[in-house]
Nucleic acid binder design. Sequence first.
DNA 1: GTCTATATACGGATAGAC
DNA 2: GTCTATCCGTATATAGAC
Lengths: 208, 208
Amino acid sequence: MEKNASKKLDKSTEEKIKSAARLLFQQKGFAGTKTRDIAEAAGINLALLNYYFRSKEKLFELIMKESLGGFFSVLKNIFNDPNSTFEEKIEQLADTYISNLLLNPDIPTFILSEVRNNPETLLAVMNSKTFMIESVFLAQLQEKIKQGECQPIHPMHFLMNLLGMTVFPFVSKPMLLHLGIKSESDFTALLEERKKLIPIWIKAMLKT
Amino acid sequence: MEKNASKKLDKSTEEKIKSAARLLFQQKGFAGTKTRDIAEAAGINLALLNYYFRSKEKLFELIMKESLGGFFSVLKNIFNDPNSTFEEKIEQLADTYISNLLLNPDIPTFILSEVRNNPETLLAVMNSKTFMIESVFLAQLQEKIKQGECQPIHPMHFLMNLLGMTVFPFVSKPMLLHLGIKSESDFTALLEERKKLIPIWIKAMLKT
DNA sequence: GTCTATATACGGATAGAC
DNA sequence: GTCTATCCGTATATAGAC
């Protein structure tokens, strides 16, 4: 009762710091973010950041692991769902990721550019390096190829295309907004269209 | 004669600093790079960096403008070549960019993540925000659609797909190397294959 | 042009009062 | 738990000798 009572109204201090940190780290990366800015954005004092999280590094690792975990747990679940067909997985992937990323458009650049600096973090989050390769999804692809239902294609090419079509628009968003897409709402509208279009394009690609 | 004589053997000090700065900025971004590291990598003293380039910021802007300029001048030339067909442009784009990026794989992440921080830099490099939209390339696409030679598609979807297929593998390279691609040479081999495959996939997509 | 030494500022972290 | 004040290392930049 004591302090959980207010939890739904005011976020706890710890949560306020995490939210501010998440936003800033995702936008500016580790080196580009100052603990003072996090404190200010969270509306608290700098000393509290160290009180709750010990150091900037520890706070960053926490945020990074949560971001990576969120990103990959969704991927894992879809890739290994034994009850959905190959085509359904493609549709789910495009739909789920585009929806998620429209809410958090900075995540892909954050993850990709910070994994480059600390590849070890990846391993900490994913128990297996081979979960993609050994997934139900790619097995289904191999099976279709064997049955002659689609053209032979290296699984990695397939992944690069599928993830490229889905994720690349978010990575290149700042550039696209200066290169043909006029507004945020235009961007959102295009991405909403892609939920339906990507599965169609991928199928066409495989039929070649 | 005096100092140009040695220019082909030893790079000038100015050039040594620029090379070191280019490498480090592209790998670690502006905030993640220390001027001391640049000086050390260049094999010169820290004071010389400021002697030649005034400040870290000025040096960074120089490198960034060169990188952006290189990236887009190639794009511009291919997009607006009046003598090549639509199909030839796709082939040229995949071929040229993959070749270039295999030599400088860090450039896309560098450009994309730093354009997010300073979108103005883009404007400084490209006199026109609309050169892509108004390019010969996209006019050729529109014409093909009008002639019924391919399915209607929003030019921006087309660009996201083409650039996504070409550039995304480089952006996600550090992740792919931990997620199915076993070595640098495997990565190179896959990308070499993509030079031929991307045009085929794109054509299939448009025929749907 | 190139170096050593140093000024100055800034960012991460802690001490200690409340 | 939260604040103010402060310490201390480090990063950019410059002064000045050679």
